[in-house]
């Protein structure tokens, strides 16, 4: 409903349109995965609910927009988004978040809500209330012809590829590296890995900064399609919550499946529900009813998953 604003024109419903929307849904889902991966890692390893994750998404987007403005380089902008969000994440972890690991969820909710206020108003103070714009670089703009005669924006395709590559890297990191072993061990038993000589507080800072960097990258990538503004992270944060509730908290695989489900449901529902209703009733009320229902669709999906599996598709007992 927010990231996908493509193809508003009325084309006849066709296979091409459906494929195009499936790609849009994938692109949305991949971005949600980058957001949700950090959230679910932080919850899985540290047991922390972090409402300020959307603020890190915003930090990444603003850093990218600022660096792109100074240097004109999109690659540098993306790197800045990773670095700035990771640095902000590490700073916040060291100063505030680590005091919250032993607290109950209510304290975590309040403290991270307070962080949102500080980040949002601080950014507004630094950059002003007007949105910034981050341009898609020329080598990624314009449409590309896909097999089957589908014209699709190259940049969106690039987002899908970048997201999938980063996602694959994350799976590799967790499954195959020493740090990944420690992260998985941290999820299973915190005291034990501390007893085995792993510096747990360094590991926590690292995991938090990693999640922040992924959120920052997502913010920068999406910032080039939408505008970069204060509060941009919050709608995405809540969708990321829906994603990990569906996928199961703490599960990276669940985050991926949940993100793609939510991305596809939201995108396809937004486009096709009004058309579906148009077959049954007059156009005006079909459009408004369809749009209303489409905006609720992912939450209905979430409720349905909860009815069948209260701890999500891939969740253990949380």
């Amino acid at each position: 409903m927010m990231i996908v604003a493509l193809t508003k024109e009325r084309t006849p419903m066709s296979l091409i349109l459906i494929l195009e929307q499936v790609l849009n849904g994938l692109q949305f889902g991949v971005m949600l995965f980058l957001m949700a991966a950090g959230l679910t890692l932080v919850f899985g390893v540290m047991g922390l609910i972090n409402l300020a994750h959307g603020a890190l998404y915003m930090v990444g987007a603003f850093a990218a927009a600022a660096v792109a403005g100074w240097t004109g380089s999109f690659v540098l902008a993306l790197m800045a988004s990773l670095a700035a969000a990771a640095a902000a994440g590490a700073l916040v972890e060291v100063t505030v978040i680590r005091r919250l690991y032993d607290r109950d969820h209510l304290d975590q909710v309040l403290a991270t809500f307070a962080l949102i206020l500080i980040f949002s108003e601080g950014t507004r103070w630094l950059f002003g209330s007007f949105p910034l714009f981050l341009d898609v670089p020329s080598y990624l703009s314009g449409p590309v012809m896909l097999p089957g005669g589908i014209q699709y924006p190259l940049y969106r395709l690039a987002i899908i590829v970048i997201g999938l590559v980063v996602g694959a890297g994350l799976f590799w990191l967790i499954a195959r590296t020493r740090i990944g072993v420690q992260i998985r061990a941290g999820e299973a038993d915190r005291e034990m890995i501390a007893a085995l000589g792993v510096d747990i507080s360094k590991l926590y800072t690292l995991v938090f900064a990693l999640g922040a960097a992924l959120a920052g990258l997502a913010g920068a990538l999406v910032g080039a399609i939408q505008s970069v503004q204060v509060g941009m992270g919050e709608p995405v944060l809540i969708l990321a919550f829906v994603v990990i509730v569906i996928g199961g908290i703490g599960s990276i695989k669940g985050a991926l499946v949940g993100a793609l489900l939510v991305g596809l449901t939201d995108t396809l529902g937004g486009v096709f529900l009004p058309r579906l209703f148009a077959l049954l009733m007059e156009p005006a009320s079909a459009a408004s009813l369809g749009a209303s229902l489409a905006s609720m669709l992912i939450y209905i999906l979430m409720a349905a998953v909860l009815l069948v599996r209260p701890s999500g598709l891939f969740g253990g007992s949380a």
Binding site: I238, I249, L306, A318
Partner: peptide
């Protein structure tokens, strides 16, 4: 619906229904 879960799920689900 939300009380089928607890803890952090409950927080996120009430938030999601509000949204």
């Amino acid at each position: 619906l939300s009380l089928r879960t607890s803890g952090v799920y409950f927080i996120m689900i009430t938030l999601a229904f509000g949204q």
